[in-house]
Simulated assay, not measured.
Amino acid sequence: MSSARVWFITGASSGFGLEMARCALAHGDRVVATLRKPEVLNGFASNYSPEQLLVLRLDVSKPDEIKDAFAKAKATFDRIDVVFNNAGYAFAGEVEAVPDEPARALFDVIFWGAAHVSQEAVRFFRDENSPRGGRLIQNSATVGLAATPAIGFYCAAKHALEGLTETLSKELDPTWNIKISSVLPGGFVTEIIQKFEMLPQHPAYAEASNPATLIRKYFSSGMDKEGLKARWSDPVKGVQKIYELSLLQDPPLRLLLGKDANHYVGEYLAKLTKEIEQYAAWSDDLGHETD
């Protein structure tokens, strides 16, 4: 086990987090699986020895619990090689319809939770690991670049995480040997489907042709696992690609995961490119010359 890497995974109760834990363990690595309710993994954990798997309580919206979980991982395995920053959830609701309380709670997990895990991961890789270094992999979303109606605050939180991740990647000293990547999955058949909540619709957006209404209809019909398998990707295959990403010596900053992810972001980039070209001349006489 001395050559095995140590993974620190948030949101390991289900979905990508649990599948990533299974994948890493199957490859002979060791895993620190964190989640709000550790008892959820009692059955899963019984298949592995304490030398392979450590299950810890962690609510990423509480910074003290993040620091405590990293310290326990250090005490158990001495180092952490890969942090898979995955914890999150989503709900539907038009921007105008979402109250502050659920919107802020979402940001506390998806943005602030991920931000605090990222800060502690970088500090740990630099100051605790010997030799220095590690991989931080953010589990973001396609909508972190190409937004979708009816999930505006989820899109906003993922956009914020994308901005933070790119900035952080540019701040790191190369001698620290820390690599950062953001994975942007499209649709994958995970338990988030059953947990997905739709807030009451704002009446102004209730027309059948409204984009938010169409998205709501999509989420409310055919969202069972069997129905989605024909349209969405397999998370078991997805986490294998993330595992392969973790092995790359020169990983990309962003990995689009899924044909739909590549399609939607491609459309977004084409539209952005067109707008840049169409309006570039508006900046010609603003008093600044580029080098």
Results as ranks from 00 to 15, higher is better:
Leu286His: 10
Ala92Gly: 14
Phe44Val: 08
Gln201Phe: 05
His116Trp: 14
Gly93Trp: 01
Asn86Lys: 07
Asp64Ser: 15
Pro102Val: 01
Ala208Val: 15
His202Leu: 11
Thr76Trp: 07
Leu53Ala: 13
Ala97Met: 00
Gly152Ile: 08
Ala33Glu: 09
Lys67Cys: 06
Lys179Gly: 05
Asp173Trp: 09
Ala212Glu: 02
Asn177Trp: 01
Gln52Gly: 05
Ala150Lys: 05
Lys74Tyr: 08
Asp59Ile: 08
Gly15Asp: 12
Asn47Gln: 13
Arg36Glu: 11
Trp7Gln: 11
Pro252Tyr: 10
Arg104Gln: 11
Arg5Asp: 01
Trp176Leu: 14
Leu25Asp: 11
Glu101Ser: 08
Ile151Asp: 07
Ala147Gln: 11
Phe70Ile: 11
Gly88Ser: 05
Val236Cys: 07
Phe16Pro: 06
Asn177Lys: 12
Gly227Asp: 05
Ala157Gln: 02
Trp176Glu: 13
Asp29Cys: 04
Ala24Val: 12
Gly152Tyr: 09
Ile178Arg: 03
Asp68Gly: 03
Val265Arg: 07
Ala21Leu: 08
Leu53Pro: 12
Ala4Tyr: 03
Ile178Gly: 05
Arg79Ala: 01
Gly133Lys: 02
Ser220Asn: 10
Phe84Ser: 03
Glu267Gly: 00
Gly133Glu: 02
Val31Tyr: 14
Leu25Gln: 10
Ala270Cys: 04
Leu255Ala: 07
Leu228Ser: 02
Lys72Asn: 13
Leu54Gln: 13
Asp108Glu: 15
Gln278Thr: 15
Pro174Arg: 12
Ala157Trp: 09
Ile80Met: 06
Arg30Val: 12
Gln119Glu: 14
Ala147Phe: 10
Pro185Ser: 04
Leu256Ser: 06
Ala103Val: 06
Asn177Tyr: 02
Thr175Trp: 06
Asp29Leu: 01
Asp108Asn: 14
Glu19Asn: 12
Arg126Gly: 03
Glu120Cys: 11
Asp291Met: 05
Ile9Gln: 06
Gly152Trp: 10
Ala75Asn: 07
Phe84Gly: 03
Ser209Phe: 13
Thr167Met: 11
Ser13Cys: 03
Glu166Met: 05
Ser13Pro: 10
Ala71Cys: 09
Gly15Gln: 11
Phe125Cys: 01
Tyr205Lys: 00
Cys23Glu: 15
Gly113Thr: 10
Ile192Met: 13
Gln194Leu: 09
Phe70Ser: 06
Leu35Val: 10
Glu171Phe: 08
Ser283Cys: 08
Lys62Gln: 14
Pro131Ile: 07
Pro211Asp: 07
Glu275Asp: 15
Ile193Arg: 12
Leu272Val: 09
Ile151Met: 15
Pro149Tyr: 10
Pro50Phe: 04
Gly113Val: 10
Asp68Arg: 12
Gln249Ala: 15
His263Tyr: 13
Leu257Trp: 04
Val183Arg: 02
Ser49Pro: 00
Leu53Asn: 12
Val265Gln: 07
Pro131Asn: 07
Asp68Phe: 13
Pro235Thr: 01
His263Ile: 05
Lys170Pro: 00
Ala150Asp: 15
Gly134Ser: 05
Leu25Pro: 06
Ser13Leu: 04
Leu257Asp: 02
Asp173Pro: 01
Pro102Lys: 01
Glu162His: 08
Val32Ala: 03
Asn47Lys: 06
Tyr89Thr: 00
Asn85Glu: 06
Asn47Thr: 03
Arg231His: 11
Glu101Leu: 06
Ala206Val: 03
Arg135Gln: 08
Tyr48Leu: 06
Ala4Asn: 04
Val109Pro: 02
Thr148Lys: 10
Leu184Ser: 14
Tyr218Met: 14
Glu128Phe: 03
Glu120Lys: 14
Val239Gly: 02
